[in-house]
């Protein structure tokens, strides 16, 4: 698998680590939301917004849209710029 880092260009997946669902960008502001935020996942079979870290590159956190069935990478953006 390869990801195109917005800062570094196309790179082998070895340079990245994976965190999980991009729901993590939306940290709740009230205590009620935290259980869902920390634990509950849509876990779709299909396109999935997720967070990757370019640890062996620029250190950037990326928001990647990727299909979990085909592994096709649909889009990559810097997480700081892609916050909903």
């Amino acid at each position: 698998m390869r990801l195109t880092c917005p800062l570094c260009g196309p790179r082998d997946v070895r340079e990245f680590s994976y965190r999980g669902d991009a729901v993590l960008t939306d940290r709740p502001t009230t205590p009620e939301g935290f259980h869902d935020y920390v634990h509950i996942r849509e876990n779709p079979a299909g396109p999935h917004d997720e967070l990757w870290h370019h640890g062996a590159g620029c250190g950037g956190w990326l928001k990647v849209r990727r299909d979990t069935v085909t592994h096709e990478v649909l889009s990559v953006a810097l997480a700081r710029e892609a916050r909903s």
């Binding site: 698998m1 997946v13 669902d21 079979a45 999935h48 990727r66 979990t68 069935v69 592994h71």
Partner: peptide
Amino acid sequence: YNSYAARGN
């Protein structure tokens, strides 16, 4: 990474 592909890299 999340996957339903039953194959890896």
